[in-house]
């Protein structure tokens, strides 16, 4: 799958680069409780970034902030030097931790985000996407009736339908069997190979190893380290990361 920017030369202005993504001094609180607590982070374009951290560390919140679904109480986020805007957001897609699917058929969930295409093309494209997610056989099934794993694959397919430059994934294979996990990882890897920036949150250390170029470790609303993947798994730099990796390995 090629990016629109690379294939369409028909008078298309080449889009401004989104990277580096720089977050500075991000704060997000609920009442007295600081959930994101002065977080700073820089992410480049070329790497596949995996965010790790214990439950409640603030990973999902961070994705929401980066994607512009939440406004930080303090701090700034810039994409290639530019502030977040509708255009920037339009070039991103987020696969939520809990899949939010429209009360429509699986197919209609895809055609819904393909509204920029002519009707005939829309259906063809949606079927292609379903096939890629191995969901062709349940195209007409209401999305709400799909199994948890099927819903997550559909969610991913819908995000990919938008051909985003940045793909945020919040535990995309949390409730998925090994075969389907492999499929999802393949879909993600393919997207990355096509030039899509991947920002993935996961608890699955195996998955992190397979997909990550670099690891961002989050603890209590702060980034404790940003480390290249091989190094992170062999020699985490910070204590929380060490015990996190160790704890998982012991289990």
């Amino acid at each position: 799958m090629l990016k629109a920017t690379e294939t369409e030369n028909m008078g298309h202005v080449r889009r401004t680069p989104l990277f580096p993504l720089v977050a500075k001094g991000l704060k997000y609180a609920s009442g007295e409780r600081a959930l994101i607590d002065g977080l700073s982070l820089e992410i480049g374009e070329t790497t596949r970034t995996v965010i790790l951290g214990p439950n409640g560390a603030g990973k999902s919140l961070l994705l929401r902030l980066l994607h512009g679904l939440l406004e930080p109480d303090a701090g700034s986020i810039t994409w290639g030097g530019e502030a977040m805007s509708g255009e920037v957001q339009a070039r991103q897609a987020l696969v939520f931790q809990r899949p939010t699917l429209l009360r429509r058929s699986a197919l209609a969930n895809l055609t819904f985000v393909l509204s920029h295409l002519p009707a005939a093309e829309r259906t063809t494209r949606a079927h292609e996407l379903l096939a890629a997610a191995h969901l062709e056989h349940i195209a007409a099934t209401p999305a709400r009736l799909l199994s948890g794993g099927e819903q997550q694959r559909l969610s991913l397919a819908r995000a990919l339908a938008r051909e985003p430059d940045v793909l945020f994934l919040d535990e995309p294979s949390a409730s998925i069997d090994p075969a389907a996990t492999a499929l999802i990882e393949k879909m993600i890897a393919n997207a990355a190979d096509d030039g899509t920036k991947i920002v993935l949150v996961t608890h699955d250390l195996g998955q992190a190893r397979r997909l990550a170029d670099e690891v961002v470790f989050l603890h209590q609303g702060r980034v404790t380290e940003v480390t290249p993947a091989p190094e992170f798994f062999s020699r985490p730099r910070t204590d929380p990361a060490r015990s996190f990796v160790a704890g998982r390995l012991v289990l």
């Binding site: 929401r64 679904l69 509708g86 957001q89 897609a93 939520f96 939010t100 429209l102 985000v113 938008r162």
Partner: peptide
């Protein structure tokens, strides 16, 4: 229903 869809709608712009 909007409570359910809100974030998705926002994300889809």
């Amino acid at each position: 229903l909007h409570g359910e869809y809100d974030e998705l709608f926002q994300s889809l712009g």
